[in-house]
Amino acid sequence: MAAIGFEGYEKRSPGFTKAQVDEILNPVECTNVYSLSNEHVDSYVLSEPSLFVFPYKIVIKTCGTTKLLISISAILKLAESISLTVQSTRYTRGCFIFPSAQSYPYRSFTEEVSVMDGHFEKFGLASKE
């Protein structure tokens, strides 16, 4: 998953609490191994992916099997709780060598986009071809 951009970043608290980060990570079954923060970004080295929280966007990167799409609901809930609104989204991924061995919705990019659209169409951010 790539950047989820938010409008109203000036209202963001300075960093997420451990409980807030855990709320995003627990559904995808990964843990925070180490975190580092400065005035520009909070970065989290996770058990498989990495999480970067900027005042205006969240970036989650993985090269493994973490099911990042599951975290979208928790991210949107957290954003709403601190009065942030979604401005834009971007989702990218490479190709699987064995796509049929993946679980839904990770068998195809089309399935993944469908899940993203399910979350972001209400913000007027449906996928573009």
Rank of each mutant, 00 (worst) to 15 (best):
M1S: 11
M1F: 08
F6A: 02
F6R: 02
Y9V: 07
Y9H: 15
Y9G: 15
R12V: 04
G15I: 04
G15M: 10
G15H: 11
G15V: 06
F16R: 09
K18Q: 14
K18E: 13
Q20K: 04
V21S: 01
I24F: 07
V28M: 13
E29M: 09
E29F: 06
C30L: 02
S35A: 10
S37K: 15
S43H: 05
Y44S: 06
Y44Q: 08
S47M: 04
P49M: 02
L51R: 03
L51Q: 03
P55G: 06
P55H: 08
Y56C: 03
Y56A: 06
I58D: 03
I58E: 03
V59I: 13
V59Y: 11
I60L: 13
T62K: 06
T62Y: 09
C63R: 12
G64P: 05
T65H: 14
I70V: 14
L78K: 07
A79N: 08
E80K: 15
I82Y: 12
T85E: 12
T85P: 02
V86T: 08
Q87R: 14
T89R: 12
R90F: 09
R93F: 01
C95G: 00
I97W: 02
F98R: 02
P99R: 05
A101M: 07
Q102I: 00
Q102V: 00
Q102R: 11
Y104Q: 02
P105A: 06
Y106S: 03
R107C: 09
R107S: 04
S108R: 03
F109A: 03
T110C: 09
E111K: 04
V113E: 09
M116T: 03
F120I: 05
F123R: 07
F123Y: 15
S127L: 00
K128S: 07
